[in-house]
C-alpha cells in the first residue's frame, strides 16, 4: 500500500465552479464523489492525483426524484445506501434497490455514490446491470453543455467511458416504465456479502396475462465482459414465448454464449460462463415469480422459484 502524495482538495458549490477549478488547475485532477474507489486507487494502485475536486458540496448532484411522467432521476451523488433504501425505488424497481444493497457493506454504501460507481466503469459494478435493463440514460456536464447518453453506450472498456477530461456525470435518468414491469438482480459471489460479483445478472420483463408470455424482456450481465452488457441473444430467445424453466434455460444458454468472461483469482472463465447460464435462468424465473414480501436476506439471493 502506498501513502498518498500531497494534494489539495477543493470543495466547489456548483458544477460551474467545479469545472472552472478543473480548467484552472489543469491536468492531474480527479473528481471525488464517495471516495471509496479513489482512496483505494491512491493507496493501492499508485494513483497520484495533483489535486482533487470534491463534488459533495454541489447540492444539485444529490437526491432521488420521481417526475410526473414516471421517470426517475438519480443524482450522481446519491449514495448506494440511499438507492438501497429509497422508498420510491424499492416500490418501483425493487431489484434496483437490491442491486445497490449488494455493494460492499453499509459503511461503503453510505459513501459510495451511484454516479461514482458508473463513472469508474468497473466491469463488476452491481447497479449497472439493473440500470441497463431499465434502459437508463446518463447526463454529463461537458464543456459543450449537457449531454445525454444511453448507459449502454456510456462504457468503452474497464475504467473507460465516453466522458472526457473535465466532464462531470450529473444524473442518471430511468425512463418511465410500465407498472407491470418485473425484474430481478442476482449477484453471484462466494460469500453472502462483501465480495465483488463473480457474475451479475439483471432481468426486466413484461408478460401477458397469466400465461407468462413474454412481451418484452431485457437482460444485462455484469463481470463477464469488459463492460457490463445487454444479453440480446438471450432476450431474443424469450420474446413472445412462454416463460418456463425450459425457455429460461435456453435464454441462459444464449447469455452464456454471448458473454466474454475472463479467468482470474476469483473464478475461471468457464465457470463464470456456466454461472451466467444458471443465474440468467434463475433471474428470469425469479422475475416472473414476483417479489414475495419479507424474505430473509440469504433467501433473497439466487433463487426463489
Amino acid at each position: 500500500m502506498k501513502r498518498p502524495e500531497p494534494f489539495e482538495i477543493f470543495q466547489p458549490a456548483s458544477i460551474q465552479e467545479a469545472r472552472e477549478l478543473h480548467i484552472h488547475h489543469g491536468p492531474g485532477g480527479y473528481f471525488l464523489a464517495g471516495g471509496t474507489d479513489l482512496a483505494i486507487a491512491i493507496k493501492e494502485k499508485g494513483l497520484v492525483p495533483r489535486y482533487v475536486v470534491d463534488l459533495k458540496r454541489i447540492g444539485s448532484l444529490s437526491g432521488i426524484r420521481e417526475n410526473a411522467d414516471g421517470s426517475l432521476v438519480l443524482g450522481a451523488l446519491a449514495t448506494m445506501r440511499e438507492v438501497e433504501i429509497s422508498r420510491v425505488i424499492s416500490r418501483r424497481f425493487p431489484f434496483l434497490s437490491q442491486s445497490a444493497g449488494e455493494v460492499g457493506s453499509i459503511q461503503i454504501r453510505n459513501r459510495a455514490t451511484i454516479g461514482g460507481n458508473i463513472a469508474n466503469a468497473t466491469p463488476s459494478a452491481d447497479v449497472v446491470p439493473a440500470l441497463l435493463v431499465l434502459e437508463a440514460q446518463v447526463t454529463t456536464s461537458t464543456q459543450n453543455g449537457e449531454k445525454q447518453v444511453p448507459l449502454e453506450s456510456f462504457f468503452l472498456g474497464p475504467g473507460k467511458t465516453v466522458m472526457e477530461r473535465g466532464d462531470i456525470l450529473t444524473e442518471i435518468i430511468i425512463p418511465p416504465a410500465s407498472a407491470n414491469l418485473r425484474g430481478e438482480y442476482i449477484k453471484f459471489s462466494p460469500r453472502e456479502m462483501m465480495d465483488l460479483a463473480y457474475v451479475g445478472v439483471a432481468v426486466a420483463l413484461l408478460t401477458d396475462g397469466d400465461e407468462n408470455v413474454c412481451r418484452e424482456v431485457r437482460i444485462a450481465l455484469g463481470a463477464v465482459s469488459p463492460v457490463p452488457m445487454r444479453a440480446r441473444k438471450a432476450e431474443a430467445v424469450l420474446v413472445n414465448r412462454v416463460i418456463n424453466e425450459e425457455s429460461a434455460e435456453r435464454a441462459g444458454e444464449a447469455a452464456a454464449s454471448e458473454c466474454t468472461p475472463i479467468s482470474d483469482v476469483r473464478a475461471s472463465a468457464a465457470y463464470r460462463r456456466h454461472m451466467v447460464r444458471v443465474n440468467t435462468k434463475r433471474a428470469i424465473l425469479n422475475a416472473v415469480c414476483g417479489r414475495p414480501g419479507n424474505l430473509p436476506w440469504v433467501a433473497r439471493r439466487e433463487r426463489r422459484y
Binding site: E8, I9, K56, Q107
Partner: peptide
C-alpha cells in the same frame, strides 16, 4: 450519524 469506513474518508472533505 452514518457509519462509514474512516480509512476511505479524506481529511480535506
Amino acid at each position: 450519524g452514518k457509519p462509514v469506513n474512516s480509512c476511505l474518508v479524506f481529511s480535506g472533505e
